[in-house]
Structure formats: structure tokens, C-alpha cells
């Protein structure tokens, strides 16, 4: 019996939920300034036609 819950499968998942949310916070904070591209990538003036052309080339 943990936290008033008798079934192992239920109290363990109750704790798992809290721990996994905490793990997300720890990961996010630990990597707060990592992952910035060397050359951050969109021109405000990029027209519809230019974007269409790019995708056409890729297809």
C-alpha cells in the first residue's frame, strides 16, 4: 500500500507520472542553452512563388 493505493501497477504508475514530468524539467533546464544551430535559419519578403519553386524542386 503506497499513498493509499494497494495495487503495485497503480501506485507505481502514479509515481512514474510525477517522476517523468520531473525528468522533463531536469532535461530541459540542463540543456537550456544547447542545440542552437551554428547558422540559425526565413526572409520576411520570401514570396509565395519562391517557396513554391523550392518545394517543386524537391519533389
Amino acid at each position: 500500500m503506497v499513498l493509499g493505493i494497494p495495487d503495485f501497477w497503480i501506485w507505481s504508475v502514479y509515481l512514474l507520472c510525477v517522476l517523468s514530468a520531473a525528468a522533463c524539467v531536469i532535461y530541459g533546464v540542463a540543456n537550456w542553452n544547447r542545440g542552437l544551430d551554428k547558422e540559425p535559419e526565413v526572409s520576411e519578403e520570401a514570396s509565395w512563388e519562391e517557396e513554391e519553386k523550392k518545394v517543386e524542386e524537391n519533389l
Binding site: 520531473a22 533546464v29 537550456w32 542545440g35
Partner: peptide, 18 residues
């Protein structure tokens, strides 16, 4: 615009879903 934003989003995303 970069992976940094995704790293930061993980922190609030997990708590929000909980």
C-alpha cells in the same frame, strides 16, 4: 528555429501534460 527551443519546450511540456 533551432533544437534549443525544443530542449526548452520539454521542460514545460512534461509538467503541462501531467
Amino acid at each position: 528555429k533551432s533544437n534549443r527551443e525544443l530542449n526548452r519546450a520539454v521542460a514545460s511540456g512534461g509538467v503541462f501534460i501531467l
